[in-house]
Design a protein around this nucleic acid. Structure first.
Lengths: 238, 238
DNA sequence: ACAATGGTGTAATTAGCATTACATTTTCGC
DNA sequence: GCGAAAATGTAATGCTAATTACACCATTGT
């Protein structure tokens, strides 16, 4: 093992560089940010950047992978609060919205899309780690609900896709149009979530038919698709 | 007026350059395409490019604006066939999908997003001319239906936004992940459209209650929001 | 205190490409 | 055919920024 202080020092440099780079990338984009600028802001030197990240692309990769994570943790947390489906979905919607539509995240998504032209497999990996993983976590949640007797229209995977659609379309809008973050978020979000729940057969009205007071899951007999959809959420930063 | 053959010649050059540029941009992206390459493919010369488009940015602008148009015309055409709402929406979904998810369009959207970092107002204009205009056309369609007695859950604008969400989320997926165009389009699309219609209260089941045989709009008394939503579709290429 | 390891600062090196300039050829009305 | 106007081809120019090389300073373990 290396001596701890040495490692710490190196790590601190690395963190500082990644942080400075992230801020600059978010403000100006990747192409317009020079390594000289990054180094000027982070301290350190060009040579260090090349040692740590091999080249500018490597730095971008580090920035992206260390900044944007999936919403799995959020799904886990909201589910853990044990609320009935309708309320769970409302909170989930709010949390995912906050997560995926944070200005920094949008800016980085723009950069990833731009780079996807020359490096498709990097973009694919990014997408895998964020959107797909989150979608799978939501699908698994739906699967658990369905397994415990909550009726809904459609397979968990399909419903998860549609649920994610609530955010993605806004993400696209913001990514392209640079619209100011709308302040009417809360209502819009609720409206959309309710729309989703209506179609999915999960709206509050439906729940009342089952008595929504003490909603408790019952993990007993599982349908066929359950096994694949039930992939256990992995440990990963939010 | 200039003499006709002269103008024709100039126009033909222009068209050839735009076409070559579009193909190259779609294949390689904007940054990686050099003007020399474009000119080599189109014939003509660098000097001509600078005369016609002022600079590389101008060429991009021309390519984008002459290639991607809104789906207004499609909305008009599908509506004109006079089918009941459910069937109209299915066809509309199919048409819009084909339009917005064509590989060329996706590639150009990628480029616009990339450029939106340094030129936000150009990107906003693009968005305005494509997605927003299409959404408004769909909203106006919903407004007309609602005005003629078709019941639905939510304002036309809101419903149009949700309807567009069906495509946008896939557009995002394709733009980022470069997934091969899915061949399972038809089913997925139908499934989603039906999902939308369920939530919107427009599904076939609902229609049957009104008798869906000879569905005919009745543009008589209009609700308050109608005027703004009813913006007449403008002439524009599809 | 002292070497050694490794970070730092600066100054080349390099390369790509947009943009410009200009000399040559083509087009087209007359 | 002729000459003006425009198009073409080619060869600079110029700039930007990634990448590399190298000489100088800091930290750390002994």
């Amino acid at each position: 093992m290396e001596s701890s202080p040495e490692t710490l020092r190196l790590d601190r440099r690395r963190a500082a560089i990644v942080c400075a780079a992230r801020n600059l990338f978010v403000d100006q984009g990747y192409e317009r940010t020079t390594l000289a600028e990054t180094v000027a802001r982070a301290g350190g030197s060009l040579a260090t950047v090349y040692k740590l990240f091999r080249n500018k692309d490597g730095l971008l990769e580090a920035v992206i992978l260390e900044t944007v994570a999936s919403g799995e943790a959020l799904v886990r947390d909201v589910e853990a609060s044990g609320l009935p489906p309708a309320e769970t979905l409302r909170r989930l919607a709010e949390g995912l919205y906050r997560h995926f539509l944070a200005p920094d995240v949008i800016a980085l998504v723009r950069i990833v899309i731009a780079r996807s032209i020359s490096e498709p497999q990097f973009a694919r990996q990014f997408f895998e780690r964020t959107a797909n993983r989150t979608r799978d976590a939501v699908a698994a949640l739906f699967a658990r609900w369905q397994a415990s007797g909550t009726a809904m229209n459609g397979s968990p995977t399909f419903l998860a896709e549609m649920f994610m659609g609530i955010f993605v379309s806004d993400l696209q809008t913001q990514a392209i149009s640079h619209a100011a973050a709308s302040s009417q978020l809360p209502e819009r979000l609720h409206e959309r979530t309710d729309f989703f729940m209506t179609a999915a057969g999960l709206s509050a009205a439906c729940e009342r038919r089952l008595g929504n007071s003490e909603w408790a899951p019952d993990p007993s007999v599982l349908p066929g698709w359950f096994t694949e959809a039930m992939a256990v959420p992995r440990e990963e930063g939010f």
